Simulated assay, not measured.
Amino acid sequence: MAVIPKFNASVIESISKILGDTSNGFTGTEIAKLLYESSIEDIESTITKWRRINAALENKQNIDNCSNNILAFIQNSLNPAKHYDNEEWFNDTRNKINKVLSFEGFSIGENGKIEPIKKSNTISESKARASKLKESLLLRKVHNDVLKYCKEELLVDNYFHAVFEATKSVADKIRERTNLTSDGATLVDEAFSFKSIPYLSLNSLITESEQSEQKGFMNLLKGLFGTFRNTTAHAPKIKWKIDELDALDILSMISLVHRRLDKAIEAKKMYEGKI
């Protein structure tokens, strides 16, 4: 690894406080082992855990005139093999560390490896690069269009606008595939109603079961627009609260809708011989 310039003292202190958290962090013995594995001298073994880590990291950085061993310590501390039975602690701690590391232009991945990133200059940028919401959605393999339409909001964990933008993306896709210009429930009826040849169909619409599936999907879309898009469009943000778990579930449902839309048959175009 190339020589990495010294970290700001406040960055080292914040990292030390996160890894030295007395409530559920490392034991004193574990800290000693991690410092040894990272070739860092344990110079103050009798003081509180975070101050012990901070003293050792600052001392090593001053000796080396670089921060390479600090990154080695973080990487050793967050080796996923060490935390296979405590995934919640690992993810939470890694998220906190990444918020701090981003100010020096680094991030530690789910695999425990340090990688360079664009350096943060503000707290908002720091939060963006360590967004728990985005990571959780990626772990759920959420549809790319959900991320594309609300990328900016997701990066700052703005749940309210993330749901709003993602829901709008569903209507956008329906209009794109049908060339219709309406919105909301009207758009759903125009695109999926099978009183005549529908613009979009989920199946052949021959059996009662297939027709029920189409009707159910139409009701799901109308409910999605009425509950989340129309509400967020008119309600002040402070009065319409969505927590992280709500956002994850709503965005996952929108992801499912996008997958079904991707697979929908363009029945009207086929009937008219346009495809």
Rank of each mutant, 00 (worst) to 15 (best):
K49Q: 10
K17V: 13
I43C: 08
F225G: 05
M218C: 08
K60P: 08
D42P: 00
P198S: 12
Y199K: 05
I40F: 06
D183V: 01
Y159C: 06
T207C: 01
G216H: 03
H83E: 02
S169K: 00
G28W: 01
S45M: 08
I265Q: 03
S193P: 00
D42N: 14
S23I: 12
H161A: 11
F217S: 01
D246W: 06
I4E: 03
P80T: 13
S120W: 07
L224F: 03
I114F: 04
Y36M: 12
S39Q: 14
Q211L: 05
F192D: 11
I97R: 06
L221M: 07
L248I: 13
A9L: 09
N144M: 10
N62Q: 14
N54D: 13
N179K: 07
E165D: 15
L19H: 05
R129Y: 13
D172K: 15
S126A: 09
A55V: 02
H234P: 07
I31P: 08
I117G: 01
N24H: 12
R229H: 03
F90W: 07
I206Y: 09
I174T: 02
E30M: 13
G223N: 08
L251F: 00
S196T: 15
E13Y: 07
E210P: 10
K148A: 15
D246I: 03
I47L: 03
R177N: 09
S196K: 15
N219L: 11
W50S: 15
